[in-house]
Every structure is written in C-alpha cells, then in structure tokens.
C-alpha cells in the first residue's frame, strides 16, 4: 500500500524537517519504505514551503505526491494552495490560528490542531511542527509514536530534546482526543 503525505507552510516553520522526521520514522525505525522530497523558494525563510513523504510497503517508484492521503497545512497561503488537494476521504490537519480564511472541502476529514498555540504554551513557537507531527501520528496511525520519538531525537539540535518531546506528546494527546471525538 502507498500512502502520500504533504506538509505545507512557510519557510522557517520546520516543514521540511517534519517530512524528514516522518520518513525517517517509517523507513529507519519501522520496516516500511519512505521517500522525502521538498520544494521551497530562494528566500528560504518566509516563502512558501512544501515537503512530501511517500510511504509504501513495496519499492517506491514515483517519489512525489500525486494524490495525497494526508495534508498538513500551517499557513494561509498553504491552505489556499494545498488545503483542498487531499483525496476523497483523506485527512487534512490545519493550524486554525494560522489559517483564518477557510472554505473546507466536505469530502475530506478536517482536523483543527492549534499547533502554534500549543507550541507557545510549551515554550517555543518553533516546535509547532513537532506538535503537528504528534497530532498526525495519533490521528492517522501511519507510524508508531515510538518510531517518531526516535526520529525526532535524531533530527533536533542538542539541548532541545526535552522541548521537542514535550511538544510531540502534547500534539499526540491532542490528536488522540480529536480522533476520539469523530465517528467516521
């Protein structure tokens, strides 16, 4: 089976890092195949930014996302561009404080995760991506939380491990609650 995940936001939010963590969790700390690709503008920080992960049991031929199963949106621009790109029945995670102008598609499962707000409560805005990753892990179940924890530790700078782990747990708990509230 092939699962396609798209992360979108602006440069500096850790969009590319989120993709790296998820793909490392699935192909190094789990036994699936994963490929991560990225796209960003020359301004690097502040410009629109996208990271894509393809996860599969079989060998992955086409490494880009074609018809996403899961979309994570962390900015208004990303919402306009990718908020409606998830396939029918797919999952879309939105940070509601970053996206105010909305017109959610009906045929996908929308989840509002106030990741930036939670990250601020934890101590730093910069870990909002890890909060989102926690929620994504809980809601989609595409990878075990243990594998993601290991991948986070491999990807974050020394001295920030605790901050990132707290952010992940907060996001994971929030995601578990959200998923429990839905009946579909």
């Amino acid at each position: 089976m092939r699962t396609e995940v798209r992360f979108a936001g602006f440069g500096g939010q850790g969009i590319i890092r989120s993709g790296l963590i998820l793909s490392m969790a699935t192909c190094i700390y789990s036994d699936k195949n994963a490929v991560q690709t990225q796209s960003y503008g020359p301004e690097s920080r502040g410009g629109s930014c996208k990271s894509e992960v393809v996860i599969a049991d079989e060998e992955i031929d086409f490494p880009k996302v074609d018809d996403p199963d899961i979309v994570m949106v962390m900015s208004q621009e990303a919402y306009y561009k990718y908020g409606v790109t998830a396939k029918k029945g797919g999952v879309v995670l939105v940070d509601p404080d970053m996206v105010t102008d909305r017109n959610d598609p009906r045929e996908v499962k929308m989840f509002d995760v106030p990741a930036t707000k939670i990250a601020n409560e934890v101590g730093k805005t910069i870990v909002a991506n890890v909060v989102m990753l926690g929620a994504l892990t809980a809601i989609t179940g595409i990878v075990t939380p243990e594998a993601v924890r290991k991948a986070i530790l491999r990807n974050v700078p020394k001295g920030t491990e605790e901050l990132n782990m707290t952010a992940f747990e907060k996001g994971y708990n929030y995601g578990t609650q959200l998923a429990g509230q839905r009946n579909d």
Partner: peptide
C-alpha cells in the same frame, strides 16, 4: 534538484 534534495534509505 529533486534527486539531490530527496531523502531515501
């Protein structure tokens, strides 16, 4: 660029 910036096992 895609192959250069792509991550795989």
């Amino acid at each position: 660029e895609i192959i250069g910036h792509m991550s795989e096992r």
